[in-house]
């Protein structure tokens, strides 16, 4: 059911996004940083699911708050003539890599333990 919801959400979002009017170039930074923040939240969510401490409220609040905050910070950076969005980018992408590492390790461990198990069964 969750997978269906994810698929429907992705497809509808993509369709509307493709047909949406083109936004001016000036605002591209805001959207990009929001996308990165949302992706960071998604990977964080996956990690927490794997760690079995997933909380929907925390995930959703993180998803939207991070995006909005990063946009606000970028805006502030523009006003201060300082590229604050670079800091946000470093943090988000760094966390994304950390989470990806955790996910990778989890599946590799699962896989290797399964192979070992199969070997043991074969030997027996």
């Amino acid at each position: 059911m969750i997978i269906i919801a994810i698929l429907i959400g992705c497809i509808v979002g993509a369709l509307i996004g493709i047909n949406a009017p083109v936004i001016p170039y000036t605002y591209s930074t805001f959207l990009a940083i929001a996308v990165v923040a949302a992706l960071d939240s998604v990977f964080g969510g996956i990690t927490s699911v794997l760690k079995k401490n997933f909380d929907l409220t925390i995930f959703i609040s993180g998803f939207f708050c991070n995006s909005i905050l990063s946009i606000a910070l970028t805006y502030l950076g523009q006003k201060l003539n300082l590229d604050i969005y670079l800091a946000a980018l470093v943090v988000f992408v760094g966390r994304m890599f950390t989470n990806l590492t955790i996910i990778r390790r989890y599946y590799i461990e699962k896989w290797t333990s399964k192979i070992e198990k199969d070997d043991k069964e074969l030997q027996q």
Binding site: G9, C10, G13, G17, I23, S28, A34, V35, L39, L56
Partner: peptide, 20 residues
Amino acid sequence: ITIGIACFALMLVMFMQFNM
């Protein structure tokens, strides 16, 4: 539903950005 909405928002923004 909430995860669907989140996915929707993410993809919407992403594709808008791609388009732009």
